[in-house]
Simulated assay, not measured.
Amino acid sequence: MTFLLFVACATPPRSGVGPSGAEGVTRYEQSLDSATSGCMRNPACYSQPGSEAILPAVGRSVAAARGVGTALRILDAAELARIEQLLIQCSKAADQEVNEREYGPGKKPDDAECERVVRHVDGKPLRRRMELGTMKHAVAFACVRRELSRLFPDNVSVEPRYGFDARTGRPVLTERWVGSLRPDVVIHFAKEPSRVQCVYDFKFPCTKASKSNPLASPELLQQLERYEALGGHCPPAIITPQLGVSRD
């Protein structure tokens, strides 16, 4: 049953919920003041066309609609569009937040800085682009938990880990690392994370080439192919600050 929500801007209180376990994440959350969160607090804010669109804060309307019962089992196309725009805003905010904190206002790393080896971990080089990517993921996750999970708490999971039931072959939540998958953001049936609707991964390209064509990476394409085993109603996608939603 399709359940359409017709909502206007509202200004629900901030939840203040954030991720844990990553060094410096609390500081990232406190310093993040993106266009997305600004819109969420502005009753005059309306969504705008294009990749720069800012989503309206619809928390109270969504909560009221959910009170009707269990009709909201799966999100409709309009709600998914809102979610994708919010993911883009979180991605852009994280990219800008970390670049400016690390390099100064309006600055970002060049290709040489992206490829600079910061240190070696287990004998393998850790490059600056990898380090920046970890920082930006932390900020993006904080944004998603603070805003998107507040609007659609029953339908959104951040970094869920999936295994596969040996008897049915269907995805199930697991704590096992071996053979499991852990997408960044999963949209699913209400309160049923194992019934996947859409899968998204944040990517933060650093070099000029990767920014213009992030799907050129064979490893990334293989990752999206593995996510297809989780099922869903849309192909797995990546979210980048430069191109927004990209699918193979």
Rank of each mutant, 00 (worst) to 15 (best):
138 A>W: 01
130 M>G: 05
23 E>C: 12
22 A>G: 08
138 A>S: 09
67 G>R: 13
125 P>A: 05
35 A>F: 11
39 C>S: 03
156 V>Q: 00
75 L>K: 01
107 K>C: 08
155 N>E: 05
20 S>D: 12
34 S>M: 08
82 R>W: 14
157 S>T: 12
58 V>A: 08
48 Q>W: 03
17 V>R: 12
34 S>Q: 09
55 L>R: 13
83 I>A: 04
152 F>Q: 01
141 F>W: 10
140 A>M: 10
156 V>Y: 00
103 Y>R: 11
52 E>Y: 12
137 H>G: 08
134 T>V: 11
68 V>A: 14
129 R>W: 03
91 S>W: 01
159 E>F: 00
20 S>K: 15
116 R>Y: 04
20 S>R: 15
16 G>H: 11
87 L>K: 03
99 N>K: 07
34 S>E: 12
137 H>R: 07
107 K>G: 02
92 K>L: 10
20 S>H: 15
87 L>T: 03
115 E>F: 02
146 R>E: 14
101 R>A: 12
22 A>Y: 12
130 M>T: 09
91 S>N: 06
15 S>N: 14
147 E>W: 13
47 S>D: 15
117 V>N: 01
22 A>Q: 12
99 N>W: 05
22 A>L: 13
38 G>M: 11
39 C>K: 00
97 E>G: 07
45 C>I: 06
142 A>D: 04
148 L>Y: 07
58 V>Y: 06
79 E>I: 04
127 R>M: 07
39 C>F: 02
72 L>P: 04
121 V>N: 03
34 S>H: 09
104 G>E: 00
127 R>K: 10
76 D>Y: 01
131 E>I: 01
54 I>F: 15
38 G>K: 08
108 K>N: 05
